[in-house]
Design a binder for these strands. Structure first.
Lengths: 159, 159
DNA sequence: AGTGAAACGACCGTAGA
DNA sequence: TCTACGGTCGTTTCACT
């Protein structure tokens, strides 16, 4: 927790032990606390407390991530959007679209970037025409169809 | 497994039970097999076998994902890259840079999109000048600095 | 914040339908 | 591919430092 009870300030840096715990869970999210404890030199209970705290603070979460291709979603794309009006409202509406799995407000020649996951080209075309380009505040879009997702890392922050 | 032992073809669609299991683990990657079994109407051992198979097949993996902001990485950006030569080689070199956490080959006005995670603007500037723009095959870049990561979903494929 | 101990529950291998 | 079961190991709670 932060010193003053708010979380407005910049979070305190993690110590080396917590970083090691996170690394262990980045390699395998189901590794037991006891095993992690052995690796980082802490008791099982201590590891569990730290994981709990890290999770509660939103520093990390243990989740299943899936491979869209393996699940029948053969078409992914990043869509750059130029917008008018409040981009936060637009981001909310974009987030509500099931095929949209990533929304970020940016500075540069796009105001938003959204990643979409589709079953095929037809769904992507429909998505663009019927769901995205029609949204209020979307002035133009540019689509970058994924040819190959080369590499994706989940070790943000610890590297 | 695929019928002929290779994984070249399109994977078979998952049945409803496996989808439910994945959903459970997307909500909480540490949920016990017994608990998941209760939710999907299967024994603990059956759930365990299916999770093992899904993991081995690369359909899903349970991992810790972290929030870069909470770990002191206050600057993220997407970089669009126009390239000459073999983009696969370039993608390999980009993947080797620690600050790069996402590399995708695209069709469109960029040949690659890479996401980077930096501590601050200085690191981002250095990354662009010293590590990315100097790579052989990079003809131009365009940087989209993240103002706010609005939403990120991990339920790719199941939606 | 950490340890240690005891009760409980989860996990894993194996056998069998 | 599933259930059933027993041994082992992990997790949880609590008292203590």
């Amino acid at each position: 927790m932060s010193v003053n009870g708010r979380n407005a300030g910049r979070p305190a840096a993690l110590d080396e032990v917590s970083k090691k715990i996170i690394e262990q869970l980045q390699n395998d999210g189901r590794r037991s606390y006891a095993e992690i404890g052995k690796a980082v030199g802490l008791s099982e209970a201590a590891v569990r407390q730290r994981v709990q705290k890290l999770t509660d603070a939103g520093v990390m979460q243990v989740v299943a991530v899936t491979d869209p291709m393996q699940l029948g979603f053969y078409r992914q794309a990043m869509i750059g959007i130029r917008a008018t009006g409040d981009t936060r409202l637009l981001a909310d509406r974009l987030s509500a679209i099931p095929a949209v799995d990533y929304v970020v407000l940016t500075a540069g020649s796009f105001d938003l970037l959204v990643e979409v996951v589709c079953e095929d080209d037809d769904e992507l075309i429909d998505l663009l025409n019927s769901q995205i380009r029609g949204l209020e505040g979307v002035s133009s879009t540019e689509t970058f169809v994924y040819l190959k997702l080369h590499k994706q890392f989940y070790n943000w922050g610890t590297r």
